[in-house]
Design a protein around this nucleic acid. Structure first.
Length: 685
DNA sequence: CACCTGGTGC
C-alpha cells in the first residue's frame, strides 16, 4: 500500500468514528507529504470534517481545492444535510448546476432528501425531473429518495406512483413507502403494504418494524402491535435491546394505555435514549400519575441525557389538559432556566396551558412578550379567546395576525370560525368562511363546515344548515350531523331532528351520545314512548358513555369527582351544602331542577337525586365548603371532561347570582363564565 | 459522497 492509499484509509476511519483530533493530524501529514492538491484526498478530508460536524473546516478545504469533482460537491452537501442544514445543501446544488460538474446518483439522492426535510414539493419535483432526464430515476437509491421526498412533502399518491412503477424494489423501497403511509397516519395502508411484503417473501428489518409499530400506535391497534411484538420475541429479533425498535414499542404500549408493558419494554432496553424516556414520562403524565411522572423527569435530569423542547412542550400540554395550574407554572419557571425553553413550540405550549387553565391575562401578557411568534402561537390565542366566549378578541387577533404578515392556515381558520360560533358572531363567521373558500393555499375541511353549521344552527337557520351539509363537496361525518342535531333540539325542531337522528344512527350506531340526543329530542316534545324506546336500545346494546368527571384545585391539591361519587371524605358535608344551596335558591330565585336540559347526559341521570350529585356540582360543593374563592379573587374554577349538563348550568347561574361569586367552568367544549346569573356561553353550547 | 426508523402542539 502506498502513502496515498494509507491516508485515505486513515481518513475514512476518522470519519466513521468522528475522530476530529486524529483527523486533523492526518490532514497535517497529507500536506507535509505533498498531497495538498490531491483531488481524492481532499474529498476524503471534506467528508472527514463534515462527519466530525466541523462544516467550517470542511468548507475551507473545499474552497482551497484546485479542482473539484462531483464527489467533492456531494460530500459537502451531505455534510450540511447531516448537520441539519438542508437549505445550504440545496443552494450548493444549484451552484453546482452552474459549473461543468454533473450530478450523480448520490448528489440527487442527497438533495431529494433535503427537499423532503424542508417539505418543498416544487423543489423536489424539479430534482425528480433531473433524475428522469438523466436516467438516474431507475437507480434504486434515487427512486427510494423520490418516494421519501414525496411522502415528506405530503404528496403520498405521487410517492405511491413512483413505488408502483419501480422495476426493482429493494427493502429500502418498501420501508420508505411504509414510512410514508405511517407519516401520514394512514396505518391501514402501512399494514396492508407490510402484508404484501410478507407475501412476496421480503424480509423486514428494524426500520420496517419501527414504522409498523408506529402505525399500530396511530391506529390504536393493540392486537396487531402485540402480535408484532410477540413475533419479534419468538424470532429472537436481535434489536429488542436496542433503542429504536423498542422505543417504538414503548410508545405503542403508551398509546394503548398499557403502562405496565411499556415500562417492562423500557427496562429491557440496554441503552435508552431520550425518545423512549419521553414516551414513558408522557405516558405516566397522560394517565394522571403525577408522582411517577415527576420521579422519572427527575431521573432523566440526573441521567446523561438532556431534557429537550419536545418533552417540555408535551408535558406542559398534559398539564394543560388536566388544568394543573401549579405544575404548569412550575414547568414554566423551569423552561426559563434552560436553553431549549426558548423553542417556540415550548412557548406555544405555555400559552396554551394558561388559556386552558382559564388564565387569559397571563397568556396574553406572555404572548405580547414573545420575541418570535408563529401561526401556532396566534392560533393558540384565537382558540383560547374563542373558548372563553370572547369572540371579539379572537376576531381582532385573527386580523392582527395577517397584518403581522402571517398567513392563516386551516387550523387558524378553524379557530376563528369556532370563536365566532361560540360568541354568536354569525355575520363575521360567514365572512371568514367565504374568504377561506377563496383562499388559494388551503381548502375548508368537514370541521370548518361543522362550524358554519353550528353558526347557522345557533341562529335557528336550520334549513340553511341542512342545505349546506347536503351541498358541501365533502362527505359529511358524524360530528357535523351531531352539531345539526344539537341545533334541532335547541330550537325544538322534532321533525328535522328525527331525520338527522336517523342518518346519524345509521352512520354511527354504537355511540351512546347519538341515542341520548335523540331520546332527549323526543322527551322535550312529549313523545315519551319514543324516548324510552331509544334509551332501551342503549341498554340492550350495552353502550356506555365515558364517565363524567370533574375536578377542582384547592390549596394546590386537585380533587376529582365522578357522577354520584361518594368517595371523598367530605361527601356528607358536600351533599349538605349543595342541598342548602338548592333550598335557598328555590326560595330566593325560584330554581327548580331542570331535567329538560340534560342534553349531554346519559342513562338514569334524569332523576333528581342523580342530577343533584353530578360531578361538577360535587366539585363546586367542595370549593364552597373550603371557603370559596381565595386570594381576594371572587372566582372558583372547575374543570369537567364532558360537557356541562343543562341542570348544572342553571344551578351554577343561580349560584353566581345570589352568592356574588364568579364561577369559571371548563368543559369538553368551551369555558363557561358565570357571573351574576348570566353565562358567557349565552346558554348555547 | 447515498436511500428507509422511534417521542409534542392548535
Amino acid at each position: 500500500m502506498n502513502e496515498r492509499q494509507l491516508f485515505t484509509k486513515l481518513l475514512k476511519k476518522c470519519s466513521k468514528n468522528y475522530l476530529l483530533d486524529r483527523g486533523k493530524q492526518v490532514h497535517g501529514a497529507v500536506e507535509i507529504f505533498g498531497f495538498g492538491r490531491d483531488l481524492v484526498l481532499n474529498n476524503d478530508l471534506v467528508d472527514m470534517y463534515a462527519k466530525c460536524r466541523r462544516m467550517d473546516l470542511a468548507c475551507s478545504v473545499f474552497d482551497r481545492m484546485p479542482e473539484r469533482n462531483v464527489v467533492s460537491w456531494t460530500a459537502l452537501m451531505c455534510g450540511f444535510l447531516q448537520n441539519g442544514d438542508a437549505k445550504t445543501s440545496l443552494s450548493l446544488f444549484s451552484k453546482m448546476g452552474l459549473s461543468a460538474v454533473k450530478p450523480n446518483e448520490f448528489t440527487l439522492s442527497t438533495n431529494l432528501k433535503a427537499s423532503g426535510i424542508l417539505g418543498i414539493a416544487e423543489n423536489g419535483k424539479q430534482i425528480h425531473g433531473v433524475c428522469a432526464k438523466s436516467g438516474y430515476e431507475c437507480v434504486p437509491v434515487v427512486s427510494n429518495s423520490i418516494i421519501d421526498m414525496y411522502s415528506k412533502c405530503d404528496r403520498i399518491s405521487e410517492a405511491a406512483r413512483m413505488f408502483n412503477v419501480m422495476p426493482v424494489k429493494n427493502l429500502i423501497s418498501w420501508n420508505a413507502m411504509i414510512a410514508g403511509y405511517t407519516l401520514k397516519r394512514n396505518g391501514e395502508e402501512a399494514l396492508k403494504l407490510f402484508r404484501m411484503m410478507q407475501e412476496r417473501g421480503e424480509a423486514p428489518d428494524e426500520y420496517t418494524y419501527s414504522s409498523l409499530l408506529k402505525a399500530c400506535g396511530c391506529l390504536g391497534a393493540v392486537r396487531e402491535g402485540t402480535q408484532i411484538h410477540a413475533s419479534l420475541i419468538t424470532q429472537g429479533f436481535p434489536y429488542l435491546v436496542q433503542s429504536t425498535v423498542s422505543g417504538a414499542l414503548v410508545d405503542l404500549y403508551v398509546k394503548c394505555r398499557n403502562m405496565v408493558e411499556a415500562r417492562r419494554v423500557f427496562n429491557q432496553i440496554e441503552q435508552n435514549n431520550v425518545i423512549s424516556w419521553n414516551s414513558l414520562i408522557l405516558g405516566y403524565a397522560q394517565e394522571g400519575n403525577l408522582p411517577e411522572t415527576m420521579n422519572l423527569f427527575q431521573l432523566l435530569r440526573e441521567s446523561k441525557h438532556q431534557v429537550d423542547g419536545f418533552l417540555l412542550s408535551s408535558l406542559i400540554g398534559v398539564f394543560a389538559d388536566f388544568a394543573l395550574v401549579e405544575q404548569g407554572k412550575q414547568m414554566h419557571a423551569y423552561t426559563v432556566k434552560v436553553p431549549y425553553g426558548l423553542e417556540i413550540s415550548v412557548a406555544n405550549s405555555i400559552l396554551d396551558m394558561y388559556m386552558k387553565c382559564g388564565l387569559t391575562d397571563e397568556a396574553d401578557a406572555l404572548f405580547r412578550e414573545m420575541p418570535v411568534r408563529n401561526v401556532v402561537s396566534w392560533t393558540v390565542m384565537i382558540t383560547g379567546f374563542g373558548k372563553h366566549g370572547i369572540g371579539k378578541k379572537a376576531v381582532d387577533l385573527f386580523n392582527e395576525m395577517q397584518v403581522d404578515g402571517i398567513e392563516p392556515d386551516s387550523v387558524s381558520y378553524l379557530a376563528v370560525l369556532s370563536a365566532c360560533s361560540h360568541s354568536g358572531l354569525i355575520k363575521e363567521g360567514q365572512e371568514y368562511f367565504s374568504s377561506f373558500c377563496r383562499n388559494q393555499h388551503c381548502k375548508p375541511q368537514v370541521e370548518h363546515y361543522a362550524c358554519v353549521v353550528d353558526l347557522l344552527g345557533r341562529a335557528g337557520r336550520l334549513k340553511e344548515a341542512m342545505d349546506l351539509i347536503e351541498k358541501m363537496p365533502l362527505k359529511p361525518n358524524v360530528g357535523i350531523w351531531q352539531t345539526l342535531l344539537s341545533a334541532c333540539r335547541m330550537h325544538g325542531d322534532v321533525e328535522m331532528g328525527k331525520h338527522v337522528g336517523d342518518i346519524l344512527l345509521r352512520l354511527d350506531g354504537n355511540n351512546p351520545v347519538n341515542y341520548v340526543m335523540m331520546s332527549n329530542i323526543y322527551a322535550d316534545a312529549g313523545y315519551w314512548k319514543e324516548s324510552e324506546n331509544i334509551r332501551y336500545v342503549v341498554k340492550r346494546k350495552g353502550l356506555k358513555k365515558e364517565a363524567g368527571c370533574s375536578w377542582v384545585e384547592i390549596d394546590k391539591k386537585v380533587h376529582f369527582f365522578y357522577n354520584g361519587d361518594e368517595n371523598h371524605p367530605l361527601t356528607e358535608k358536600i351533599h349538605g351544602i349543595l342541598k342548602e344551596m338548592e333550598k335557598r335558591m328555590k326560595e330566593e330565585i325560584g330554581y327548580v331542577h331542570n331535567t329538560k336540559f340534560s342534553l349531554h347526559d346519559v342513562e338514569e341521570e334524569s332523576k333528581v337525586e342523580s342530577l343533584r350529585f353530578h360531578s361538577e356540582k360535587l366539585a363546586i360543593g367542595l370549593a364552597l365548603l373550603s371557603g370559596g374563592p381565595k386570594d381576594g379573587q371572587r372566582m372558583i374554577y372547575v374543570f369537567k371532561n364532558l360537557r356541562v349538563c343543562g341542570d348544572c348550568h342553571t344551578f351554577i347561574k343561580g349560584l353566581s347570582k345570589f352568592l356574588k361569586i364568579v364561577f369559571v367552568v371548563r368543559d369538553a367544549n368551551r369555558f363557561h363564565r358565570f357571573e351574576n346569573g348570566i353565562c358567557s356561553c349565552g346558554d348555547y353550547w
